[in-house]
């Protein structure tokens, strides 16, 4: 950045009084802006905000009392377990994806250009493949006649197939598989935003690669890491297909529980309550964490 060389006197650029023409132009611009933004705005208000608000509002209309559906939800150990399990799976998935993502993104961002572009394409391709397809792949791997069981029996670790499908571990492995590419891509962006010369400054001052990583790169990447973590956490917390396919009925999470209440039990109050809890936790996580990320960002003062 070049140092700015003093401001022009304000009065030269902006005459004190707004002329009628300027006001008219401004009104016209505001009008044009609204016209162009209105179809999308209306669509979001009518088909997103109102329906979701209706769902949440519906939970407060129970004849048994204002918060009766929430009392119903939290008085059951089973339902509390579902919420906790969802939270646990999302948290573990986030932590593993973060650890794997940081290391991989670091190596990718340090690779020579042609290697880097191949590695990025290889990370994008799984992302473009659907959730169902990718979860299904893990059913083939973890099933009773799956590859892993065949392999374990072949090398003689076990005689009979081990039941790996429909466990919490299976859900977590598939979720990590789902979100690691996303994390890698987000973190490559974050790491490439760290200026080269800052990293070089560290090494010119005697910091070896490990110290440079710990004392310079990691602190500068932290706001980006938080953004990536929030993305993965909320997506895991609200997922349906993966826990449905790999967790089944034994590993009920909020998403599968919502579907079960609505479409199997036809309990719309219960389903709406689950939906409301998911919305609150998701939005709260995003708001709190982005605020923390902003606080930690040294570039903004």
């Amino acid at each position: 950045m070049v140092e700015s060389g003093g401001d022009y006197p304000r009065s030269l650029i902006e005459p004190g009084a707004e002329t009628a023409l300027q006001r008219a132009t401004k009104d016209m611009k505001r009008f044009a802006g609204w016209i162009m933004a209105s179809p999308a705005t209306l669509a979001l208000v009518i088909f997103l905000i109102l329906p979701v608000a209706a769902t949440i509002g519906y939970t407060f209309t129970d004849p048994d009392g204002l918060i009766a559906p929430y009392i119903w939800y939290f008085e059951s150990a089973f339902r509390r377990t579902v919420l906790w399990r969802t939270f646990e799976i999302a948290a573990i998935t986030t932590i593993i994806s973060l650890a794997v993502g940081v290391v991989t993104a670091y190596v990718v961002s340090k690779s020579p250009p042609w290697v880097k572009s191949i590695l990025i394409v290889l990370a994008v391709f799984p992302l473009l493949t659907g959730v169902v397809v990718r979860s299904f792949a893990w059913m083939i791997i973890l099933g009773r006649n799956g590859i892993l069981n065949n392999f374990l029996q072949w090398i003689g670790i076990t005689d009979a197939p081990i039941g790996m499908l429909y466990t919490q571990g299976a859900v977590i492995v598939a979720m990590v598989y789902l979100f690691v590419p996303l994390m890698i891509l987000v973190l490559i962006g974050v790491l490439e935003n760290i200026p080269d010369d800052v990293v070089q400054a560290a090494s010119s001052l005697g910091a070896n690669p490990t110290s440079t990583f710990m004392q310079v790169i990691l602190p500068l990447a932290t706001p980006g890491l938080i953004v990536g973590a929030v993305l993965v956490f909320t997506a895991s917390f609200t997922s349906y297909a993966t826990p449905h396919l790999l967790g089944g009925g034994q590993q009920m999470v909020m998403g599968t529980f919502l579907h079960q209440r609505a479409m199997v039990a036809f309990d719309w109050v219960g389903a709406s309550t689950i939906a409301a809890i998911m919305v609150v936790i998701t939005i709260a996580t995003v708001l709190v964490m982005t605020r923390i990320a902003r606080k930690l960002n040294p570039m903004a003062v």
């Binding site: 200026p195 010369d197 070089q200 400054a201 560290a202 690669p209 440079t212 310079v216 500068l220």
Partner: peptide
């Protein structure tokens, strides 16, 4: 990092954190 050379950069390259 083992060369022990003081370096002043064009963009200052201060550690922002």
């Amino acid at each position: 990092h083992a060369r022990d050379i003081g370096l002043v950069f064009q963009n200052y390259a201060l550690f922002p954190h």
